[in-house]
Design a protein around this nucleic acid. Structure first.
Lengths: 152, 152
DNA sequence: ACCTAGATGCGAGCAGTGCGCAAGAGCCTA
DNA sequence: TAGGCTCTTGCGCACTGCTCGCATCTAGGT
């Protein structure tokens, strides 16, 4: 299926829920489907503005919200700083380095057993797309301090 | 060991690193040791102000920072909103409900197997104290479908 | 008692995000 | 194809959570 088909599918879903198809939404969806992972609202706004310069940042936020309610995108707070958004279809967890901020993506399957235990013990429904685990990545773990790690 | 012994131990550690023992630090430590829950900087500030009304919020932040560098407390970003702080000795993970914001504490042991896998596959050192998993708690998950629930 | 590094109070400032409002635009109906 | 209802948008302000600069103060070694 082509990229634009995916965009149109999402727009159809939106319209099916009483939403309206607008050009800012179409452009945002296009950016979401064609781009890299984990982008902040600001980054997405920059991408959208290349195609539609007049789209306001708050419109990006509102549309991301709406798309999240429809289950098309999800956001995650990976450590500090702004939230990052990505497609809900890309189900994976994140290992986030508390030191350098880099994020490793890990297949959702890795979290299956933990999710099952959480469900059995607490009745807690883990959201595999919204999964961030903090720690230190291999590079940063090599030295105690970041400078030493970079020197290797 | 009594509570105030723990406070004095922490202060001794602080002084050993060239830090100074001040009343605001003593009071903050007392508040950290006598409460159990995850508390935000604002909540801790409120608790501190009952004993020492003139302690400024920015001092709380600076001291929490300092205590974190010494490994006495850790903070975690549990979903949205402010960061929460707790003692580093209380090693546990968190299941955070994306809907109602409640956090379930889970023993660090539950995360052991995931942590080992992450280490083997990515060389990633999971920090068990800084562990937050998003999803929906039993109450919020009850009788609602995910889309309708998120619409709320 | 004195000196100095370190700590504090205070307020300004910043990033990220939400909100209210009036104007604009999609989509349904006729 | 026009009319109109309702949703969406641009705009800008406001808010939260947190940080910083600076002048003042103080802990603690001498």
């Amino acid at each position: 299926m082509g990229e634009s088909d995916l965009v149109e599918d999402a727009l159809a879903l939106l319209r099916g829920q009483g939403g309206r198809v607008t050009s800012s939404r179409r452009v945002l969806l296009r950016c979401l489907f064609d781009g890299r992972e984990h982008r902040t609202a600001e980054e997405l706004a920059a991408a959208v503005k290349e195609l539609a310069p007049d789209v306001h940042l708050s419109t990006i936020y509102r549309n991301l919200d709406e798309l999240e309610r429809l289950g098309i995108v999800v956001h995650a707070h990976l450590g500090h700083g702004p939230a990052t958004y990505h497609l809900a279809s890309e189900t994976h967890g994140h290992f986030v380095c508390a030191q350098c901020g880099s994020a490793i993506e890990a297949p959702a399957a890795m979290f299956g057993s933990l999710a099952r235990t959480a469900w059995r013990r607490y009745g807690f429904e883990t959201d595999p797309r919204h999964f961030a685990v903090l720690g230190r990545c291999a590079t940063c773990a090599c030295g105690t301090d970041p400078v030493a790690a970079r020197r290797r």
